[in-house]
Nucleic acid binder design. Sequence first.
DNA 1: CGCGACGTTGATTTGCCTCAACGATTGTGG
DNA 2: CCACAATCGTTGAGGCAAATCAACGTCGCG
Lengths: 196, 196
Amino acid sequence: MPQNLLTAALAQHVSLTPEEESAFLAICTAQQAKKKEYLLRTGEPNHVLYFVQRGCLRSFIIDQAGKEVNLEFAVENYWISDVAFNKPALLSIQALEATQYVQINSNAFDQLTQEHPVFNLFYRKLLQNGYFAFKKRVLSGMTQTAAENYRDFLLKYPDLGQRIPQYHIASYLGITPEFFSTIKSEGLDLYLQAIS
Amino acid sequence: MPQNLLTAALAQHVSLTPEEESAFLAICTAQQAKKKEYLLRTGEPNHVLYFVQRGCLRSFIIDQAGKEVNLEFAVENYWISDVAFNKPALLSIQALEATQYVQINSNAFDQLTQEHPVFNLFYRKLLQNGYFAFKKRVLSGMTQTAAENYRDFLLKYPDLGQRIPQYHIASYLGITPEFFSTIKSEGLDLYLQAIS
DNA sequence: CGCGACGTTGATTTGCCTCAACGATTGTGG
DNA sequence: CCACAATCGTTGAGGCAAATCAACGTCGCG
């Protein structure tokens, strides 16, 4: 199992003894998904946390009009999951590229935290980061224009624009592919700003 | 100290022994704020979690254009805080009515979790609920019209519209007071739908 | 009583969407 | 290995949602 990325991601949040680290790795299972493969579908029972080692996953819903709306992308070194465990999933999760990932069962993780309380802190930090990111995104959605949100996207996912279809990015930004196309052609300057 | 609401809010998430409950109450301090009083300002050190017993708090930022943008309201029985502890605050928190609340220091809470691990679970649930709510709000922002978001607001805060100035609600919805006024006059039917 | 804060209304403008058409690229079966 | 279809990105015309700006009425409060 290629554990380097995963253990590095752990170390980013908490420092672990070798025992703790191996107890954690014991509840992880390495998986791979082909392009377009579903890991989870809305309504299915949901009790898994995903960590991407290579490739790209997306989470999305289908809105009232029947359109897919992308909520998040998870590329290398990202965690992704539905919103609440042990309930029917709100989101669907799908691979956009051939993807190597690790999955962690939430019940096994709960057990792990009882034996090794340090993982409470780890999970808390994970949650706080996600919470923080989405609070900021709500604010961005209220205060910024689509072109500015695109600039933020470029900073967060520098190379993803070259890896997946553009309409997925448009959907993530909450705009149509047509308007996204317009933004890009008008706003090359924004890109230059972003990478400078 | 009026503890009934607070202990009920705890019991909603975890079941506690009398010892655990009193250990929790020991780190809570009851406070009150006058209308318009600030509990926290952007940039200040931030290490407090708030629970509202009576009245109303709001969290907001000032955007690039200098306008206040409301992120959340906390009325009776709501928790509210900035996004990350022990960092300069991103948000400001202000009372919109005379407010009774309880504040909990995050460091004291950390200590509490070490003595009583059950509070890890409590905090985790609090975080998950908040995370969940904001993920849904990002999606709502992308898929719904302002009138539909207003309907959601009415369901979440049934009487708040009668308690605070309308422009605060407009700001929370991400629209101008003028357009909010238009929505309301056109969309009384939406309200009737919402309460039915 | 008078002033300032608040809500409303209307005219105009902007951001973004819908629909339609059209190249370019990809991939797949023959 | 080619031909054709499907997928994808782009462009343009027209339309709707919401913003901006300005003016005005109302109310609560000093």
